[in-house]
């Protein structure tokens, strides 16, 4: 029996590889200098979904992402690796959302998708490290959640069995479907792109992207509906505007400070044995070591 799986994914700035030009002179973040990538743990989540699809033929994987127009890139990435279709949730009304407003918008989009057995997401995104959106989406949809998932052992008979990796051990839990699971980086890495799928989906586009292209491309999408990445604005989903965007976010950023280190008076030591030995002797004498 096939499963309908929704994978929640986020396009994030690659904060792991922050270069020297990542901060502007005025102390604000220079987003343009940071590559936009598929959030790493969302790739672990996609792999879990793909494994379920391998195991339960007839399964269907849908990628759902919220972000600016260019976030369609990660939907294409998902299609290349084995997902079946994607939805991009994009609107200025979502700008400035904190985790709660984000999960509200995502939950509304999932209600519109309507038919699903399982929602899989990465544990957290590297631009915020909050790990909140998964559980909050689960709460908004009134579904059970399994966080810190490492392996999905089975998903059949209306039940899912998952191994969780916790700080001090592992735990196997069983939950009824549908439910939300969030996947750790300790889970297997995502498989690479499949060359045939890259050929098949490289022209997959959202309506906005197609309109920016020549008319031939629009015809292409008409002939091959699988090339259509669905794009939803706030008007396409049922929401209460007061819970969206900046206004719907209980948390506000009061202040942002660039990180400035208070320089200590430090002793500079070069890599030669006399200087190193002098330091060791000093540390032994003042009982820091030994």
């Amino acid at each position: 029996m096939g499963l309908k799986i929704i994978v929640l994914a986020k396009q994030v700035p690659d904060t792991r590889n922050v270069g020297k030009d990542a901060m502007k002179a005025d102390g604000t973040v220079n987003r343009a200098a940071l590559a936009a990538i598929f959030n790493p743990e969302d790739l672990n989540a996609l792999e879990q979904a793909l494994r379920l699809k391998d195991r339960y033929p007839g399964s269907e994987i849908t990628i759902l992402t919220m972000g600016p127009g260019r976030a369609a890139d990660i939907i294409r990435e998902g299609l290349y690796r084995g997902a079946d279709k994607g939805y991009l949730l994009t609107d200025r009304a979502f700008a400035g959302s904190d985790t709660l407003a984000t999960s509200y918008a995502i939950a509304c989009a999932i209600r519109k998708i309507k038919h699903f057995d399982l929602i899989v997401a990465g544990r957290q995104a590297i631009d915020g490290d909050t790990a909140q959106v998964g559980p909050q989406v689960a709460e908004k949809l009134n579904l059970p959640q399994i966080t810190y998932a490492e392996t999905v052992k089975s998903a059949e008979g209306g039940k899912i069995t998952v191994v969780r990796r916790l700080e001090r051990g592992v735990e196997t839990v069983e939950a009824p479907l549908p439910c939300v699971i969030t996947v750790n980086a300790s889970a297997p890495d995502c498989r690479p792109r499949n060359a045939k799928r890259v050929m098949k989906f490289k022209h997959a586009k959202t309506v906005t992207e197609s309109q920016a292209q020549s008319e031939d491309y629009i015809d292409l999408t008409n002939d091959r509906p699988y090339l259509n990445i669905e794009e939803w604005s706030v008007n396409d989903i049922e929401t209460d505007m007061k819970w969206l965007g900046l206004g719907g976010s209980p948390t506000k950023v009061k202040k942002i400070e660039n990180v400035v280190f208070q320089a200590k008076e430090s002793k500079r030591i070069t890599n030669n044995e006399e200087e190193l030995e002098a330091m060791i002797v000093e540390l032994i004498e003042n009982h820091t070591i030994g």
Partner: peptide, 21 residues
């Protein structure tokens, strides 16, 4: 792992803000 599982669930149910870490 407990607090980061429970905190967001409570904050969502109470429609309240939560700041992590």
């Amino acid at each position: 792992t407990l607090g980061r599982d429970l905190g967001p669930r409570i904050s969502s149910a109470l429609q309240s803000g939560l700041t992590a870490d």
